[in-house]
């Protein structure tokens, strides 16, 4: 990322007003047609594409002085990507920032949905690398657009069924395709399929921005989001054998952490804010230290 000091003169939230208007028009259309990928004219941002320029442009177009922004990457607020994007918006929009899911009005994310259920009025902005769920089956944009137009999603089911034939189950664990509002098949970005059920009838507005491929799409609040599956092979989320080693949480998404070079490892919450909240509330996992002891 270009250091913020080089952004000598910039508009509020970096983008010029004409670009914001264009993105805002695309966002309203995306909300009106849930799951449909609205093309937009993506702008160069002072960071490489892999850093979430689509999400950054969406966030920049909706953010105002009353917002509180949270940025997560793989569930954590303190990774380089999250820290850089947060610093960028503090610099160019002077917004309040937080790591607390409940305090944020806008949350920009890569690869996770927070464990704490989102509420009415919150906006979740996803960074999307490849917005087209049919792309790896059909490289031609004209063809995938036709498939969406005709609601012809047989190819997607064939791919999932081949998965079953090869592995005995659907092996796709990330970017697991969903159907939105009983109409469009949509790529939820590379979140673990564990998070897919959180999109279904969420109270929050969910916006997706793909910078390199120049697409914006949306899931309005309270919208049906169904993970594709088969009657004999129903959709299932990942299950973890043990609770979080630090806070004891069950039914959350865990990351593996290597402890030493002798094969020692533990599984901890990928959502660092959720884990911290639980530990502050007195929950202690197998390898965790009670917060009161730690403070002494």
């Amino acid at each position: 990322m270009t250091s913020a000091g080089n952004l000598a003169t910039y508009n509020f939230a970096y983008l010029d007003e004409q670009t914001k208007r264009m993105i805002r028009r695309a966002i309203l259309k995306a909300i009106a047609i849930p799951g449909y990928q609205v093309p937009f004219a993506s702008r160069e941002m002072p960071m490489p594409y892999g850093w979430g320029t689509g999400g950054v442009q969406v966030t920049a177009s909706i953010l105002g002085p009353d917002d509180t922004l949270k940025v997560i990457d793989q569930g954590a607020d303190d990774t380089t990507n999250a820290v850089s994007i947060r610093a960028f918006f503090q610099k160019v929009a002077n917004v309040k920032v937080t790591t607390k899911t409940g305090e944020a009005t806008v949350i920009q994310t890569r690869h996770r949905i927070p464990e704490e259920p989102l509420t009415e009025g919150q906006v979740l902005v996803y960074q999307v690398p490849i917005p087209e769920p049919l792309r790896f089956l059909e490289p031609r944009e004209t063809e995938t657009r036709k498939m969406h137009a005709l609601e012809e999603y047989g190819l997607m089911h064939v791919k999932l069924y081949e998965d079953i034939a090869r592995n005995g189950h659907i092996a796709t664990t990330y970017a697991y395709p969903v159907k939105v509002g009983e109409r469009y098949v949509m790529d939820p970005s590379p979140i673990p399929k564990f998070d897919n059920p959180k999109m279904h009838r969420s109270q929050a507005l969910q916006l997706f921005g793909a910078g390199r491929e120049k697409r914006i799409y949306a899931i309005p609040p309270h919208t049906e989001v169904v993970s594709l599956d088969f009657e004999d092979y129903p959709f299932e989320i990942q299950k973890f054998e043990k609770p979080c080693a630090l806070c004891g949480a069950e039914n959350v998404y865990l990351d593996e952490v290597v402890l030493d070079d002798k094969g020692g490892r533990m599984f901890v919450c990928s959502d660092t804010d959720h884990c911290e909240d639980r530990r502050n509330a007195g929950h202690v996992g197998e390898l965790g230290v009670a917060q009161t002891e730690a403070a002494e």
């Binding site: 007003e17 805002r24 309203l28 177009s61 002085p65």
Partner: peptide, 19 residues
């Protein structure tokens, strides 16, 4: 103030369109 007023108007519209 075009920057802040258009942002405030847009958020009102975005809320209205999503609800």
């Amino acid at each position: 103030d075009a920057v802040f007023e258009s942002q405030a108007v847009f958020r009102g519209l975005m809320d209205a369109m999503s609800r």
